[in-house]
Design a protein around this nucleic acid. Structure first.
Lengths: 257, 257
DNA sequence: GTAATAGTGTCTCTTAGACAATATGCC
DNA sequence: GGCATATTGTCTAAGAGACACTATTAC
């Protein structure tokens, strides 16, 4: 490393050790649907700054331990939800959201926070046992936020994550990650409606899901109740996560305004 | 800072100084259209590693100097193209792409690279005077890459940037940032066709641009030649960068496959 | 039978594409 | 007039919404 620095003359930007480094964090907005409500997992901070405030799960990147940012995010997700990416095909979904970096977002100095958002099915989750220092809890989302104030700029991050989630529902199939392995089309539609916060047309929705080819009926499996039984479906794994929506769901809504 | 570290007991992930930090870089894929071709700006590296290889413009984040990641990216863009964000309403476009981080992407150790992509109009650009150590040059894009091998994982970053650019053209107006202040609809369509790499229907295109309301005719200004003169248009600044495309341009192409 | 939800069909509105028709400058 | 490109119009195919209709279970 020393000789690299020596090689560097006027092109000082090209060495890795000549500038002071910011701290790099990885934060994850973990969403689920429970009791017909969209929820996000928050952790109560045990120490300053923002002691006792709620924050997105996350922490400093561990350079010695993690191979990549994605692995760090998966570790964070696994720690908080008990979801283990190693054991079989979990239907959890993880996607990088945005990177937030600046001098004033943390009172301790310049930080960079690589934010991810994740979708998990509520019945797959076992929340980490809450100690006094760090309680993990699902919080209801209202509009683009939760009711309480969040630590750092996490309210902004959450806002962006919710915006991205809503807009991706418009043209992808990611909502299936919020449902159990078997579900009815009505249940799938309900999840879309909960997140989009608007009622959808039944026949259009079914036609689109059908054309997108993202689910298939499970032969012989029906959900029964005091009504006509409903066909159970399962998710078909795709190469891409795109559900092909020529006209997006928001199309007509957008037009009305 | 010392007392923060002392406060930290078993919750060691919550201090900023207890872990080794990765280096943070900011890299920018700067695109333009020149001679009916999509091009990206590359810099020839003057020092090891990857000495003499081409790379995206970028460098280590300067914590003392830059307020935020976005400002660092703007600085990088200004340095390479002479575009000054301070002087008036430049029509340049800058958007965060993705953050790449891992142990092996740079031989010097764990790095995090926050990548941006930018669109500039070719006549606004004055390339930095090329010294021996760092020549800046436009390179033609072919498919999802340039002809030559790039340093680090910059070929991957460029691939992602091109993919994002193409997909955003489908539903946003960002292509106007590649054109001079005054342009004809045919010129705008040509830019779309160059980037999307497919011919578009003329009347559909005009209808969509018209409905999206992103351009307006400049009264009395026409482009003349040995044919019917064409109306000159200018870009209307929007709150959002969304051009509303109910059915995306790729719609029919997608359907054929 | 009734209640409740599942699932399908029909009709209209709108958009994209294909392709033709018209417009208008320069020579 | 002839050429070249700009600009508009017409016709068809297909998706989305509204809304009604039929289906099937439990009671």
């Amino acid at each position: 490393m020393q000789n690299l620095i020596n090689e560097c003359t006027d092109e000082s930007y090209d060495t890795l050790e000549s500038y002071k480094k910011p701290t790099v964090m990885v934060d994850v907005a973990i969403f689920t649907v429970q009791d017909n409500t969209l929820k996000v997992l928050l952790i109560k901070r045990g120490i300053a700054p923002y002691k006792d405030a709620w924050a997105l799960p996350g922490g400093a990147l561990r350079v010695e331990q993690d191979e990549s940012l994605e692995i760090a995010a998966l570790r964070e997700l696994a720690e908080e939800t008990g979801l283990n990416p190693q054991t079989g095909a979990q239907r959890q979904y993880l996607e990088q959201l945005h990177t937030y970096g600046g001098r004033n977002r943390d009172p301790r100095g310049w930080t960079v926070s690589v934010a991810y958002f994740a979708l998990v099915a509520i019945d797959d989750v076992t929340l980490r046992a809450g100690t006094d220092a760090s309680a993990a809890q699902w919080h209801t989302i209202n509009g683009h936020q939760v009711e309480l104030p969040l630590a750092f700029d996490h309210a902004d991050i959450l806002h962006d994550a919710i915006t991205r989630l809503r807009s991706k529902l418009d043209y992808t199939d990611i909502a299936v990650h919020l449902l159990p392995k078997e579900f009815t089309l009505t249940e799938l539609q309900r999840v879309y409606e909960i997140i989009m916060q608007e009622k959808l047309n039944k026949s259009s929705f079914r036609q689109r899901v059908d054309r997108a080819g993202i689910v298939k009926p499970i032969k012989g499996r029906m959900r029964t109740g005091s009504n006509r039984p409903a066909q159970l479906y399962q998710f078909i794994q795709q190469k891409h996560d795109r559900m092909f929506f020529p006209r997006s769901i928001a199309w007509a809504q957008e037009r009305k305004r």
